[in-house]
Each structure stands twice: as C-alpha cells, then as structure tokens.
Simulated assay, not measured.
Amino acid sequence: MHHQTPYSSASRPKIVVLCGSTRYWDQLAEANLYETAAGRIVLAPGCNLKQPHPLWADAAQADRFKTVLGDLHLRKIDLADEVLVVNPGGYIGESTRREIDYAHSLGKPIRYTHPVDGGDGRG
C-alpha cells in the first residue's frame, strides 16, 4: 500500500524564517502576520532583548542569552525553505548580515521586505 507522508516537503506549506533587527519588532510581527496569511509556516525571533525581561536582566545573562539566540536562529535557517529579511529603510545589522551570509552558504532563497541599500547596510 502506498503511504504519502503527511509532511513531505512537497505537501507541507513552505517554511519561511524571518531575519532582522529586533529594533523592528513590530515590523517582524507584521511580516509574520502576512507570511502566515499567505499559508506559510513562519519561524521568527522569539525574544526581543531590547525589551526588559527577568530572563536577561543582568548583563552576563544577557550576553549568554544573545549567543544562544544567535545559534538558535541559525538552526531556524537550517529548517527553513526560504529567508525573509525584514529591513525597513534598507537597514541590515551585523547579526542579520551573518544570518544572510549563512543562508547564502546553504543556498536558501532570500527575500527582503525593503530595497537593500548600496552601502554596507549599517544605515
């Protein structure tokens, strides 16, 4: 008997990972909304370290947490079929740049919400 796996990559929705600075938390949420409405599975940053929270209240914790989250996001890129960079005003920060380079190295398609500026992207 022929069994179709319920989540073969052909039948499951496309997985998109959002990359971008958490300074654009609202824009990341908006991109999540639109991508979800378009029927895609969305992987996104789950913590905004720019907002105070007990989990990263002290500086040492915050540094450790930042490293963990950075690595976690690379694993999200591993899972994703494509990358959507949320870059209002063309801004791409250092960690987002690293994520884009990583996605490129894996041959993942990359989309941008805004035109990419011609400079080094530090805006």
Rank of each mutant, 00 (worst) to 15 (best):
H3G: 01
Y7M: 01
Y7H: 10
S8R: 02
S9W: 00
R12E: 00
R12V: 00
K14W: 00
K14G: 03
I15K: 00
I15T: 08
I15H: 00
V17T: 13
L18C: 06
C19Y: 04
G20I: 04
G20D: 03
R23C: 08
R23K: 12
W25D: 07
W25L: 03
Q27G: 00
A29P: 00
A31R: 02
Y34T: 10
A37W: 10
A37S: 11
A38Q: 10
G39L: 08
I41W: 02
L43F: 07
P45F: 06
P45K: 04
P45S: 04
G46M: 11
L49W: 11
K50G: 15
K50P: 02
Q51E: 15
P54N: 04
L55D: 14
A57G: 06
A57E: 15
A59W: 11
A60R: 13
R64M: 11
F65Q: 10
K66N: 15
K66D: 14
L74P: 03
L74T: 04
K76L: 13
I77L: 09
I77H: 06
I77P: 06
D78N: 12
L79M: 14
L79E: 12
A80L: 01
D81F: 02
E82Q: 13
V83R: 01
L84Q: 05
N87T: 07
N87Q: 06
P88Y: 08
P88S: 08
P88I: 05
G90K: 07
Y91G: 05
Y91A: 10
I92L: 11
I92P: 01
E94R: 13
R97V: 01
I100W: 04
I100G: 04
D101R: 14
Y102F: 14
A103V: 12
A103Y: 02
S105E: 13
L106N: 09
G107T: 09
G107P: 07
P109H: 09
R111S: 12
Y112W: 11
T113I: 06
T113M: 11
H114G: 03
G118E: 15
G119W: 12
G121C: 08
G121W: 08
G121Q: 05
G121M: 06
G121I: 03
R122S: 14
R122Y: 10
